[in-house]
């Protein structure tokens, strides 16, 4: 039980002081969980983040829950999850409520006019970063353009596009494996 509260408090602190989510949390988690608490070592934490990225959902939340799970099983996972979520919930709640009060003010509207393109830049930058790690040969640019076109011109929801892309990846992987097998495994 003591461990439960310790994990909860650690992730509550991390949730309150980490801005930017996802990868921005890595250095903070590393300092708290690896260096101060010595719950898991550094290499394990990097593996946790790699897997958290491949799993659906928020990366930071997945990683926190995962660390909690490795430290103290299911109660640990629950403690880390709640600790990470609660500060976000409370702070965002208060901020959105405040925003609703002032959103018709002329200064706030002008500020929002400046913030919106910055948010769009942040989202475009996220696309750029994933694109950089994922578009690397002659096939992947077509998947990128195809996914964009499917959403923009054909108004498909993201989910079926994501499923089709994963299936395309599997098909390409199978063809590559087949080719490698044919040529006696000499080529990659």
């Amino acid at each position: 039980m003591e461990k439960f509260f310790e994990i909860f408090l650690t992730f509550f602190k991390l949730g309150t002081f980490s801005f930017g989510g996802g990868y921005a949390m890595i250095p903070l988690i590393e300092r708290e969980v690896c260096r101060n608490k010595k719950w898991i070592d550094k290499e394990d934490l990097y593996d946790v983040f790699a897997v958290s990225e491949a799993l659906p959902g928020a990366i930071a939340l997945n990683a926190s829950t995962f660390v909690g799970y490795r430290v103290a099983g299911i109660p640990g996972a629950v403690a880390a999850l709640l600790g990470n979520l609660l500060p976000s919930v409370l702070i965002v709640w208060v901020l959105v409520a405040a925003f609703l009060q002032v959103k018709d003010n002329a200064y706030v509207q002008n500020a929002m006019n400046g913030i919106r393109p910055a948010i769009i830049a942040l989202i475009t930058f996220a696309a750029y970063k994933i694109g950089k790690s994922g578009i690397k040969d002659r096939i992947t640019p077509f998947i990128f353009v195809g996914a964009f076109a499917a959403c923009y011109f054909f108004h498909l929801p993201p989910m079926p596009v994501i499923i089709c892309a994963a299936l395309t990846g599997l098909a390409v992987g199978a063809v590559k494996a087949h080719k490698a097998h044919k040529s006696g495994g000499e080529q990659k």
């Binding site: 696309a127 994933i130 578009i135 990128f144 996914a147």
Partner: peptide, 13 residues
């Protein structure tokens, strides 16, 4: 391998 470029496209959208 298939997911990453598609997600880049969806996010750009």
């Amino acid at each position: 391998y298939g997911l990453r470029p598609a997600i880049a496209g969806i996010v750009l959208y």
